[in-house]
Design a protein around this nucleic acid. Structure first.
Length: 606
DNA sequence: TTAGGGTTAG
């Protein structure tokens, strides 16, 4: 082709390099390299990646590395080629020094080969070449990816022994690794004891808090960082938005958003994606969509966050429209996007669409259905009352039914009052997750709705005997930048008297609108009258009452709850939204409920 | 010569 005088473009070069590599024709490969330079394609990343492989295979490690370093986005193939080259070279070095060991360990770590990186460390240590901060921080990063908390502790001890207590790289590495291993207390201890004022260490610690659900701690640390005069960058903000998301702190998210705009970090894709997620989780899907539209180059994560947000808000059809818009833009969905798409169908009751997506996802999008997709599909079928179809899928799927699947079946059994399926699913769940009290409660609900009071009594006894405590329901409501917490029957709030007075004031119009307390499914071992009182003072009702007295008339009220919203509160809040002419948004553990004018966006289907 | 922090679901 070349000798015929036909010009080669950037699409042809990678194939030519690949052919040279496969046939070991390095002389020709180098000639082609010359042509690349002449034709001006030496900056094309596909061309460069294929050259890295060529030079690595012919053992010219220096050239391979030089080209590799210049590529902005490296492919797995070029990583592997260069790494193999280093490993081979490394193996023939008789006396390996510290730098050689570090280079190979970090090569494995960068390449996602964390087990190899971590296992090389003891060999290196045994050689007596010593360790430096590079070794430890590289190994800690792999430990973090592996979530190996036991090894993390050993590396911590070694770091202290080696005198790296105040080294920023090591402090950051330990905070990150402990955090990823789920040991947030250890992360926090290392961070505090180091007394560091390093931006990366602060970012890691803020991230640990936000991923551990300690949103308030994350925000507090961010304030402390600012008071120390440490200038934030875009990394901090993606974690901070997550902290706001986990707190459902809408006002906080808005304030942080303003700062991000001022600092010019809004073009950062991670911060942008977190902002979309944050607004969605804080109850404002409109703000989320505005933020989404402002992202200059939307990634699959941006689309997934937006589609998932719409799904959780019950806007199933809009979520599917968004999905189609994404496909039109040529963005390929991943397994998470498809979970959100199925979830959208689920919340909107779109069974036919769900079946279509589920059965064609592998063919259309090359994504094999995973456990999550099966669990979602079983949930959809179950909710829609297609219990036989749901069971058939359970029996034919290539996975063992897990807690998500049994949970879906238990939920379906509750909605459709199927006592047999309910008790079977509950039994499986109690085996899989004995510590969770929700299972007992759902089963009790099934018995109660079937009028099987002896069953309810039996569960009450089992819970009492096995000391299973109902997880206390808690609700949160944010006013300005303060988050107010409520627990059932709680009178400790400074405006407690007014809150209870408001509920008292609402009781008559509620009764007139048809509200009857649903005392029968309550498992507390108390008198009926006492039960009605407890029910009427559930945390979400207290939070809504507080919202009514603490926000201006007509303002929306946003509440977050740690469990599923209870049926009684759902009914009551629907009526309150009409009586008080307010939009009330409740985020529960599963989804959002937008109450307006006596109705809920979930269509009583949750 | 070798090295550190962030995003989407269930």
């Amino acid at each position: 082709m070349h000798s015929l005088g036909v010009k080669c473009n950037e699409f042809a070069f990678p194939s030519v390099f690949k052919a040279c590599t496969l046939t070991n024709d390095f002389r020709l490969g180098k000639q082609v390299h010359g042509t690349v330079v002449v034709t001006g394609f030496e900056n094309d990343e596909f061309v460069l990646n294929s050259m890295v492989v060529l030079y690595a295979k012919c053992g010219e490690i220096a050239d391979s590395t030089r080209i590799f370093d210049a590529i902005p986005r490296r492919t797995v193939v070029s990583w592997n080629a260069l790494l193999n080259c280093y490993v081979q070279l490394f193996n023939v070095i008789p006396e390996k020094d510290l730098i050689a060991w570090n280079a190979v360990i970090s090569g494995h770590s960068h390449n996602g080969e964390d087990v190899e990186a971590v296992s090389l460390f003891p060999l290196m240590y045994g050689e007596g070449v010593g360790v430096n901060q590079t070794t430890l921080s590289t190994v800690l990063k792999s430990i973090a990816s592996l979530q190996a908390s036991h090894i993390c502790r050993q590396m911590h001890a070694l770091s202290l022994k080696s005198g790296f207590e105040y080294n920023n790289y090591i402090v950051n590495g330990l905070v990150d690794a402990y955090g990823k291993c789920g040991q947030s207390e250890d992360a926090s201890r290392v961070f505090k004891e180091s007394q560091t004022s390093d931006l990366l260490a602060f970012t890691s610690m803020i991230t640990v808090y936000s991923q551990d659900g300690q949103g308030e701690e994350a925000l507090k640390l961010y304030l402390e960082m600012q008071s120390q005069g440490i200038k934030p960058d875009a990394f901090v903000y993606s974690s901070l938005f997550n902290a706001c998301a986990s707190l459902s702190a809408y006002e906080q998210a808005k304030q942080v958003h303003v700062q991000v705009l001022k600092l010019g970090f809004i073009i950062d894709i991670f911060a942008g994606n977190s902002l979309v997620n944050s607004y969605a989780k804080c109850g404002s899907i409109d703000d989320a969509e505005r933020a989404f539209r402002e992202i200059p180059e939307r990634s699959i994560v941006s689309w997934s966050a937006m589609i998932g947000g719409m799904a959780q808000h019950g806007h199933g059809r809009l979520a599917l429209q968004m999905f189609n818009e994404m496909l039109k833009e040529g963005v390929a969905p991943n397994h998470i996007t498809l979970v959100s798409v199925l979830c959208a169908c689920n919340h909107a009751g779109l069974v036919t669409d769900a079946k279509r997506y589920f059965s064609s996802m592998e063919e259309l999008f090359s994504v094999q259905p995973m456990e999550e997709h099966y669990a979602c599909m079983i949930d959809i079928l179950g909710r829609a009352g297609k219990l036989d179809e749901a069971m058939e899928l359970v029996n034919t799927m290539p996975y063992e039914a897990n807690a998500a699947v049994w949970g879906a079946l238990l939920g379906a059994a509750r909605i459709h009052k199927n006592v047999d399926l309910g008790s079977k699913a509950a039994e499986m769940l109690i085996n899989l997750e004995p510590e969770k009290s929700g299972t007992h409660i759902l089963l009790a609900n099934i018995y109660a709705s079937a009028g099987m009071w002896d069953g309810v009594a039996k569960i009450r006894k089992v819970m009492k005997d096995s000391n299973v405590k109902k997880e206390p329901g808690m609700s949160w409501m944010e006013i300005k930048d303060k988050v107010h917490t409520f627990i059932v029957g709680d009178r400790s709030h400074p405006r407690g008297k007014e809150i209870y007075a408001k509920l008292e004031e609402l009781s008559e119009p509620l009764r007139k609108a048809g509200y009857v307390p649903m005392v029968e499914t309550d498992l507390h071992d108390v008198e009926e009258r006492e039960k009605a009182k407890l029910l009427y003072h559930h945390s979400e009702k207290l939070a809504v009452a507080f919202g009514l007295i603490a926000t201006p008339p007509g303002a929306p009220i946003r509440v977050k709850k740690n469990l599923r919203i209870c049926l009684d509160c759902h009914t009551a809040i629907k009526l309150v939204s009409k009586i008080a002419s307010r939009e009330i948004i409740v985020r529960d553990i599963n989804r959002f409920h937008h109450f307006r004018d006596g109705l809920c966006s979930c269509g009583d289907y949750w």
